[in-house]
């Protein structure tokens, strides 16, 4: 039974990774851009939530109502100014530029907020849990994060398949020139996709801040970007539900690794990712074509 509990904990941890991966997956799927600053942007979101809680005395859970639109605006503006220009150069330029952004964000956070670690409080919910049977413990917070991941993914899925904007995004992602000929301004559409991706980063960053402590370097030292990317790749590119599966698989593998020894939690996940990359680069759910 103890193994069942490990798997349950892994699934719950995977919810957090999947939540992180949503934005990365969307930008990669639509613009073919890997945002290497993704992890650090999530840390910015956590700091923003902390600021909103302190200054406006908002409850943490409600702070995302402010931070999501704010991040969406930042995403749109950043895309239209810097990221589109670098994509016009080449895909490699987007890597260099977003990597530079990641390092700049991290050092700027350090300048403004010092290296001390912080956390977001959410009251009793942070530690409360319920038991299933005698061995399985489910934390309310972990479950809430997993549900948030599912809700965000479901929302993205519905948005992309049911709305006019969503159809435009898919059209531009499929064939930019054709969509352009049909009258869609791809730069605006990409900007909207970036805005949505950044909005999900705001949710993920806040969830991370509630889940554990964070400091300015968390984005790179805690490998947030890597976990997000790993969830995307393990699940298979271009599939949002694959991202959820990938995040959960990563969480489960990490939790099983942690049973061997706590230090092996990260190593198990990283080696699993490299294995998938070498054996099945198109991911678990992907078809050969997308590799």
């Amino acid at each position: 039974m103890i193994w069942v509990n490990d798997i349950v904990q892994g699934v719950l941890l995977g919810g957090l990774y999947a939540l992180f991966a949503c934005g990365l997956s969307l930008m990669f799927g639509v613009m073919k851009v890997i945002n290497l600053a993704h992890g650090d942007l999530a840390v910015v979101a956590a700091y923003l939530a902390a600021g909103l809680v302190t200054v406006l005395h908002m409850p943490t859970a409600l702070s995302i109502l402010v931070s999501i639109p704010l991040f969406a605006i930042i995403g749109y503006v950043l895309w239209r100014t810097v990221l589109q220009a670098s994509l016009n150069r080449s895909v490699l330029t987007t890597l260099l530029v977003t990597f530079g952004m990641s390092i700049v964000i991290e050092n700027a956070l350090q300048q403004f907020f010092s290296a001390n670690s912080r956390s977001l409080s959410i009251g009793a919910l942070a530690t409360d849990h319920f038991n299933v049977g005698s061995q399985i413990t489910v934390g309310y917070l972990d479950l809430a994060i997993l549900i948030a991941a599912v809700v965000v993914l479901l929302g993205l899925q519905l948005f992309l398949s049911r709305t006019r904007q969503g159809r435009l995004i898919r059209a531009v992602a499929d064939d930019r020139e054709a969509a352009q000929l049909a009258g869609a301004d791809y730069r605006h559409i990409f900007g909207i996709a970036a805005a949505i991706a950044f909005g999900t980063v705001a949710v993920a960053g806040t969830a991370y801040g509630v889940y554990t402590t964070f400091d300015p370097t968390t984005g790179t030292t805690q490998l947030l970007l890597l976990f997000a990317f790993e969830a995307v790749v393990i699940g298979g590119l271009g599939s949002l539900w694959g991202t959820l599966v990938g995040g959960i698989l990563l969480g489960v593998v990490q939790d099983i690794g942690a049973q061997i020894s706590t230090a092996d939690l990260l190593l198990a996940g990283q080696l699993f990712f490299l294995l998938v990359l070498v054996i099945r680069p198109q991911g678990i759910t992907g078809s050969r074509r997308t590799a």
């Binding site: 990669f28 890997i34 890597l95 890597l226 990317f229 790749v233 230090a263 990260l266 490299l274 680069p281």
Partner: peptide, 24 residues
């Protein structure tokens, strides 16, 4: 390990390798 990967995949995979080296 990485020779089949290109662009962003390659970049992130090298980062993962560095993290694995550290963890080892």
């Amino acid at each position: 390990l990485l020779s089949r990967l290109r662009s962003g995949y390659f970049a992130i995979a090298t980062w993962v390798v560095a993290s694995v080296c550290y963890l080892i």
